[in-house]
Design a binder for these strands. Structure first.
Length: 421
RNA sequence: GUGGGUGUAGCUCAGCUGGUAGAGCACCGGGUUGUGAUCCCGGUUGUCGCGGGUUCGAGCCCCGUCACUCACCCCA
């Protein structure tokens, strides 16, 4: 036991799992690069008011899950609970919306929400995010969905299910909310205080309640998908048709609701059935009003965030081996001080040339050093002691076959690089 | 914020009706004065989460507390 532990809900990533963590992140980013998305580096904390306006005051994320503190200058700042709002702020600040459109961007990094940790949910978690701003072309919605789908496929996930819905335009949503509120008050009202409050403030979210007794009562609720304006309807149809053409499978989920206020029209979630309660491994949608909500010009946008931690859990649940990290290629086993100095020099030389090399540290014995060579995963071991240095040739051992040959010391570096070719 | 479960070695865990701490794996060393993954032998690691109580005696019983974990709400 050590004196300090990581703060509650804040994970460490250590080997060997950390390699898989990075591989998941990279697989997502690779897809975005293929599609012309540019990199965005964003601050980890922002003005608290930015999130309040952008994400929405009444959302759970803003009302009870933010890491908010006052800095030394008396300003209220908040560790970002999500990436989209900050990304849009950065685009507006840099004036990118006045350049070539659409602006397509990706970013990654830690997000923070003050929640009770459980499987698949931490207070600090990592997302890869993508945003496409400046046009309301439904093909962009489909592109983003297809890219997330491709990332999951590239990683080897086969059981992910894509849920798709449209929340309509603001007017559709307002009309529908009023109708749903009346319906819910009659059937679900009086169940408990929290639910009553939700019926008043954001009735759509009641449909997302997982409690069986609530599920039962909301079974016949009117659906938003039946209340879409002709414009929202045709946008949604276009998205679906692009996905069909691209061979991306999805499930129409008319009850899919998102917890962040800025979404409208397209919304989607990638759900993994083997994960337990926190089963959404990636999600997103269109947010055409967000820019205006934070004081910017009208600027349509669509985006998603994929959870790196949860995607890794999904890989583990499917027992898919994550891409292996590149390991050591040549391992040096020095016997004695002179040999160690020579080994160190050769290892450094090899590394400069791009060959992964390592050596046995700690002046351990032959047996221990060979064991370390074996564990390093290297294809070759170079064993050298004083008598080899005097002879001018050193034994190079093929660790798979066990065969060994003597190589002149002055050509060792090239010889080893030749062997590894 | 609410509820359930669990805290013993680096890891996974055993520990009987209370009698003073164990296994497997891992790690280190030796068997082989210079050759790994097998085998054999040996060795290291513990405030039994923490604090208090009951008892001649507590890993075990009681109270409190903290942490971890799963679930609700909500979300990636």
């Amino acid at each position: 036991m050590v004196a300090f532990t990581a703060p509650k809900g804040v994970p460490d990533q250590v080997p060997p799992r950390s390699a898989a963590f990075l591989a998941v992140r990279d697989a997502m980013v690779d897809q975005l690069r293929l599609a012309g998305y540019g990199a965005l580096e964003l601050p980890v904390f922002e003005d608290t008011a930015l999130f309040a306006r952008g994400v929405g005051e009444t959302t759970d994320v803003v009302s009870k899950e933010m890491f908010t503190f006052t800095d030394r200058g008396g300003r209220s700042v908040t560790l970002r609970p999500e990436g989209t709002v900050g990304a849009v702020r950065a685009v507006l600040e840099a004036g990118l919306e006045r350049g070539a459109l659409p602006v397509k961007l990706w970013y990654d990094g830690p997000m923070f929400r003050y929640e009770h940790p459980q499987s698949g949910r931490q207070r600090q978690f990592t997302q890869v995010g993508a945003e496409a701003l400046g046009t309301d072309d439904p093909a962009l919605d489909a592109e983003l969905v297809a890219l997330a789908d491709a990332a999951y496929r590239a990683l080897g996930l086969t059981e992910t299910v894509l849920h798709l819905n449209s929340l309509g335009d603001p007017q559709d949503r307002a009309d529908y909310s009023a109708r749903l509120r009346a319906w819910l008050e009659e059937r679900v009202g009086g169940l408990d205080e929290e639910t009553d409050r939700r019926i008043r403030l954001n009735p759509l979210r009641v449909l997302d309640d997982k409690r069986p007794e609530v599920r039962e009562r909301t079974a016949g609720a009117p659906l938003l998908s039946d209340a879409l304006s002709p414009e929202a309807r045709s946008h949604h149809d276009a998205v679906r048709s692009h996905l069909d053409d691209a061979g991306v499978a999805y499930v129409d989920d008319p009850r899919l609701v998102r917890g962040l206020d800025y979404y409208r029209r397209t919304t989607f979630e990638f759900i993994h059935p083997l994960l337990g309660a926190q089963s959404t491994i990636g999600a997103g949608g269109r947010y055409d009003g967000l820019s205006e909500a934070i004081g910017g010009p009208p600027l349509p946008g669509v985006g998603w965030a994929l959870g790196v931690d949860r995607t890794l859990l999904a890989l583990e649940a499917e027992q898919v081996a994550p891409p292996a990290a590149a390991g050591c290629q040549v391992f040096f086993v020095p016997l004695g001080a002179r040999a160690k100095a020579t080994s160190f020099r050769l290892v450094t030389q090899l590394r400069r040339l791009g060959t992964a090399a390592d050596l046995a540290y700690g002046d351990r014995g032959m047996k221990g050093a060979m064991k370390a060579a074996d564990r390093s995963g290297a294809a070759y071991a170079v064993v050298l002691g004083d008598r080899d240095l005097e002879a001018g040739t050193v034994p190079v051992k093929d660790l798979r076959s066990g065969e060994q040959s003597a190589v002149p010391l002055d050509t060792l570096v090239n010889h080893v690089r030749e062997l590894l070719r």
